[in-house]
Simulated scan of single mutants.
Amino acid sequence: MFDMFGLPRDRTVDRREVVAMYAEPCRRLLEQLRVAAIANRTTFALEARIIRPDGTPRWVRIKAGTKVENGRAVTLYGLKQDITAERQQWARLRHLTDYDPLTGLADRMHFQAVFFDRSVASDLCAPPGALALFAVDNLAEINRRWGYAAGDACLIAFARRLLSAGDGGAFTARLGGGEFAMLLDGAGKTPHLEPGPSERFSHLGDPVLWNGVSIPLGISIGIVFMRRFHGHEAEAIYARADLARQVARRQAGRSPRIVSATFEGGKQVAVGSAPSAGAPAGAAGVGMPSLSPREMEALRHISRGRTIDEIAHEMAVSPHTVRNFIRRIYQKMEVDTRVEAVQRAYRNGLL
């Protein structure tokens, strides 16, 4: 035990000295669990991070119980175990499963958990203030002209530029191929991009030097600023950002090409280059199959991230009927997911 906490064995130790080694969140939780166990005559378990006197971080697992006499807790006893190696192994395994092996950024599944599911709170402490989607539009051309090794080198270089643009306060992911995403929190840790994202991202389109060859990058960026973030609107926000990126890709001009917008609880207000500028006047709905009024109502609820039960309640129908609406929407729009349906609806002016 002395060795675990980095203390000399030849002197008495004050408990307060040991408790002070616990990281603040772990220390608060430890005290809460300890008090509750004594009061309720129960057991508790905890994994906690400590910083030893020499500055070495360690992880310990604590299992404790209470000895009870005459209905009163008289002794707290238990076990402490050094699990630093175990935690490091799990961290390595998680990195293999959650991170892209080429760029070192989070992968698509990790992005899904953080943004859509909001199930990995440690990666994004505050609600996001902006979602930016990026694409290396000429990746296929780079692979064809200079080879896949050159393409990989460009992706690695681009990932490093994204990390520098995020200033360490952004969650950055590679979604696959030449597509990337960045979440910037709304708590002020990362300087806000609005209204001048062009300056922050201006270096992303610089050529990449590979084996003495200067390889140009064609970069398109779609950004959505969120006044407020509600997890149920994540799909609509993503669809809006993806549409902005597609409009940026069609624009002429020097790389990177950027289109940005603001999302306010289901209403989108254009910022900077208007996303609608990439579509011909009067093109909304061209080639779009007609939806019934009830299907349109269901589609609007889908764009706001409502669940099937919530849509059923709003429309005063059964969940089975809502599923039929969604199935017909997918069939008519020739899509497979909610995100694709919302994307096509935005693109054709239905939302």
Rank of each mutant, 00 (worst) to 15 (best):
K189I: 06
I221P: 07
E235W: 04
A239R: 02
L193Y: 08
R250L: 08
H232Q: 04
Y238M: 03
P195C: 04
E194L: 15
A187D: 15
G231R: 02
G196P: 01
V213S: 13
A236R: 07
R227V: 07
V213A: 13
R245Y: 10
L243F: 12
I219L: 05
P207M: 04
A187Q: 04
D206G: 01
G218C: 14
G222L: 12
R200V: 15
R228C: 07
I223E: 01
G205D: 14
L193Q: 11
T190I: 08
L217T: 07
V247C: 09
G196R: 07
G212I: 13
E199T: 15
F229H: 00
V208F: 03
W210I: 15
F201W: 12
G218F: 09
R228L: 06
E233N: 10
N211E: 08
E235D: 07
E199H: 13
Q246C: 07
R200Y: 10
V247I: 13
S220C: 11
G212Q: 04
A248W: 03
E199M: 12
H232M: 00
D206A: 09
S202A: 13
G222H: 02
F201C: 06
I237M: 06
K189G: 14
E235H: 01
E199C: 12
P207W: 03
R249K: 15
G212W: 02
S202D: 09
H192Q: 08
N211A: 10
A252T: 05
D206T: 02
A187T: 10
P191C: 06
Q246H: 10
R200S: 13
N211F: 06
A241D: 01
S202Y: 02
L243M: 09
G222W: 05
H192K: 04
